[in-house]
Design a protein around this nucleic acid. Sequence first.
RNA 1: GGUCGAGUGGCCGAGUGGCUAGGCAGAGCUCUGCAAAAGCUCGUACAGCGGUUCGAAUCCGCUCUCGACCUCCA
Length: 495
Amino acid sequence: MRPGLKVYNSLSKEKEIFEPLNAPYVGMYVCGPTVYSNVHLGNVRTFMSFDVIYRYLKHLDFKVRYVRNITDVGHLQGDEDDGEDKISKRAKLENLEPMEIVQKYTNDFHDVMAMFNILPPDIEPSATGHIIEQIEMTRTLLEKGLAYEVDGSVYFDVEAYNKTNHYGKLSGRKLEDLISNTRELDGQDEKRNPVDFALWKKATKGHLMRWPSPWGDGFPGWHLECSVMSTKYLGANFDIHGGGMDLKFPHHECEIAQNHGATDEEGAKYWLHTNMLTVNGQKMSKSLGNSFLPSELIAGSHELLDKPYSPMTVRFFMLQSHYSSTLDFSNEALTAAQKGYTKLANGLKLIGELSYTEDGAEKNEKAIKQIEQICNNCYFAMNDDFNTALTIGHLFNLLKKINSIHTGNLKYSEIGEEVFDKMISTFKTFTVNVLGLVEEERINSKSVLNILTDLYKEAKDAKDYDKVDEIRAKLKDLGLVLKDMKTKVDWAYEE
RNA sequence: GGUCGAGUGGCCGAGUGGCUAGGCAGAGCUCUGCAAAAGCUCGUACAGCGGUUCGAAUCCGCUCUCGACCUCCA
């Protein structure tokens, strides 16, 4: 199935056949979060999308090295050089060290990823762990005449780069348009050109996160870390670079310029961009105030939420659209997703219980053909730029067949053992391994036990001692003992 | 203002020239002590206007509406 994979490359704006530089190895870099506060649901969508991409590539037997960074250097807000960055700001607010902030929200990020069954990357490098490399790349760019230093800060010289390259090729911009569209900002006279961006920024007096460099104490520019870490762990040329649509410009554009400027190589071959999660048609973002946290979602505690939604419901909801489309959040859609997910989860439960039994029915060639077609369709859908929405559609079609077996509408022997096995394994593999949708435990064992103790008590009152002994024995097998108290029946763990 | 993208049945959401995704909601049937689950059947939608074509949701043009990026953002 491997040769069929196509991906939409933002760089060429075309769907291309996926051909890794060094098959079966695949290098994938995804821009991670800035850990100055909790990740919200919109952030989750991007990481979930790349999680499925990572899972599917692995399913196709590619040897994937997935690198996703943690941005833990505080970057300035906007171009205003007022010396305060997000992490420091937060540190002062919470009365913590900047690195405590970084750790706190990195932990939160990891918790959230685990909650949604998003696999950890193979390497998760942090910006602060690669200061030396960032200084090195800055030096290289200076040596090549693609950067200049002004009073302890170093800027990338976009115009110089653009003489022999196209700055703006990813986001479809022309340098002259960019220059003419740039607003005049105060306090940035340091730059030769408003489109230039910082590689290294001089730290002002109060700036907490600072490192020594050949240009004095300072900190790296935002775009630089990704260029440095992708190059370090994946090489000057690698296969996939991903991130949210909103990073296309300027972040990814700058990355391309830095990578190419520093290494003379092309950097990423395929650029994949995930679209935004919207609320009432508007992008979910912290600054708009329409974002909510995964924890609020699970608790149903946000004013936009009618009720709580489980992580798998959300995962199903998100995968029901294509990663490159915007997805609008609504309670109606989430409720529908909850039911859809439950249907799928019941299927997962069911396949654990079904086992092939010869029942002498005649072969049903039509059913066999249908099932085989659906199984192939799962691959076709995922091969077509990771179309999870279509894949889920196929999984529901497959589930209908599985349920038909279960209810006896379709007999085992009609499809034969081989097709049965294929049906079950395809359903399971795509649902669990590729889409990462797993059965959510929602049984409260204690309340189930209460039902049992009630039944026990009823049997005892009716003097049905056979039943009483049976319940007692079965619970004992599970390591539980029943205790007849004066006022009630209680249970305890067997000592 | 510039660049790019989107408008699909009651709702969500795939689909990019002919082969009517799928989920939710709704209607009917089967099964059934009741109920649920499940299966089967049904609704024939593509913002508007014009064009290309034997044929368009899908291509082209115009109009309307919405969004993203152009500043930190997944």
